Computed example of a mutant assay.
Amino acid sequence: MQPIDIEDHDALVTALLPTVRAAGRLEMAYFAKGVEIEQKADRSPVTIADREAELVILADLAKIAPEIPVVAEEEIAAGRPCEYARRFFLVDALDGTRLFIRGKPEFSINIGYVEDGKARFGLIYLPPSERLFVTRADGFAYEGQLSLAPGEEPPEVTFHRITTRTPDPETLVAFNSRGTGSASAQLLADLKVADARPLGSAMKFCLIAAGEGDLYARFGETYEWDTAAGQAILEAAGGSVTTPEGEPLTYGHFQRGFRNGHFVAWGRQPLWRRGST
């Protein structure tokens, strides 16, 4: 595995295909047989699948782009210090750990790339369904199938471009994070959303990018590694991710531990802003 030009997103996708397939195989093996659960300092759960998948991704990123720092969830949880960087990767090797533990196939592998506070590149892989979502060199978002079955190395994936759909105010579909309860209930009520579907992990961004939904509101705690890849993909598909005030969600906030503020992911432009209704 050789270093690549980080600005060539097609080359980055190609280089990462074996990485996410290896991490996906590892996760699905643990998903089938079960894992022991540990607790991090913030009382969130973590498993050996989280840690081993992250190690796979970190090792390959060090070869693919050795000059680019990486901010990874489990490394940060273990106390690794981070400082400001203009360019860096954000990695959540197993997004949706609680659902993974409960046997729900709603988890993802997230790899985002940030430059000057903006999510510039995203790759999200859903091992249970083998769906792969990426941004590519032409600035658009694409979906493909990355099989976990034994096959060619490196793997080949046929991609098709995806775009968000024009929202119909009468039939809006919202995806809710399973862990946030009614935190965004008022927004959904203001928009008269009749179809709100609970769903885990960053796959919510992907489904909106693929035109299968219209919005995802998160008014609870998240971290930048939860959202960067999804934001890059959704924006490349025609959507947006904003604060409740309508400002773009930004990255690199190391001084607050890479915590996000509240945000809404939209299939197109925002349909709601705080104080507008």
Rank of each mutant, 00 (worst) to 15 (best):
residue 5 D to F: 14
residue 5 D to R: 14
residue 6 I to K: 12
residue 10 D to R: 01
residue 11 A to K: 12
residue 12 L to D: 02
residue 14 T to H: 14
residue 17 L to E: 09
residue 18 P to A: 13
residue 21 R to H: 14
residue 27 E to C: 09
residue 30 Y to W: 15
residue 31 F to I: 08
residue 34 G to P: 10
residue 36 E to M: 11
residue 37 I to Y: 02
residue 44 S to R: 08
residue 45 P to I: 04
residue 45 P to R: 08
residue 47 T to Q: 10
residue 49 A to Y: 02
residue 50 D to T: 07
residue 51 R to P: 05
residue 54 E to G: 04
residue 57 I to K: 04
residue 57 I to F: 09
residue 58 L to S: 06
residue 58 L to P: 06
residue 61 L to N: 08
residue 61 L to A: 11
residue 63 K to H: 13
residue 68 I to S: 09
residue 69 P to S: 15
residue 69 P to D: 15
residue 80 R to D: 04
residue 80 R to Y: 03
residue 81 P to N: 04
residue 85 A to R: 11
residue 87 R to K: 09
residue 88 F to E: 03
residue 89 F to I: 07
residue 91 V to K: 00
residue 93 A to C: 11
residue 95 D to L: 05
residue 99 L to T: 05
residue 101 I to C: 07
residue 101 I to M: 06
residue 105 P to E: 15
residue 106 E to H: 13
residue 107 F to C: 09
residue 108 S to Y: 07
residue 108 S to G: 10
residue 110 N to R: 04
residue 111 I to S: 05
residue 113 Y to D: 01
residue 116 D to E: 15
residue 120 R to L: 00
residue 122 G to K: 02
residue 124 I to V: 13
residue 125 Y to A: 05
residue 126 L to G: 01
residue 128 P to Q: 04
residue 130 E to T: 04
residue 131 R to C: 03
residue 138 D to P: 12
residue 141 A to T: 08
residue 141 A to K: 07
residue 144 G to V: 04
residue 147 S to I: 10
residue 147 S to V: 06
residue 153 E to I: 06
residue 156 E to A: 15
residue 161 R to L: 00
residue 163 T to G: 06
residue 170 E to K: 07
residue 171 T to V: 02
residue 189 A to H: 12
residue 189 A to K: 12
residue 192 K to S: 15
residue 193 V to L: 10
residue 199 L to S: 10
residue 199 L to H: 04
residue 200 G to Y: 02
residue 203 M to D: 13
residue 204 K to T: 06
residue 205 F to E: 02
residue 210 A to P: 03
residue 210 A to W: 03
residue 214 D to F: 03
residue 216 Y to C: 05
residue 220 G to R: 13
residue 221 E to L: 14
residue 224 E to D: 09
residue 227 T to Y: 06
residue 228 A to K: 02
residue 232 A to V: 08
residue 232 A to Q: 07
residue 232 A to S: 11
residue 233 I to H: 06
residue 234 L to P: 02
residue 235 E to Q: 13
residue 238 G to L: 01
residue 241 V to R: 06
residue 246 G to T: 00
residue 251 Y to N: 06
residue 253 H to N: 12
residue 255 Q to A: 14
residue 259 R to H: 13
residue 259 R to E: 12
residue 262 H to G: 05
residue 262 H to P: 11
residue 264 V to D: 02
residue 265 A to M: 13
residue 267 G to M: 08
residue 268 R to T: 11
residue 268 R to P: 00
residue 268 R to G: 01
residue 269 Q to M: 10
residue 270 P to E: 01
residue 273 R to N: 00
residue 275 G to H: 09
residue 276 S to K: 12
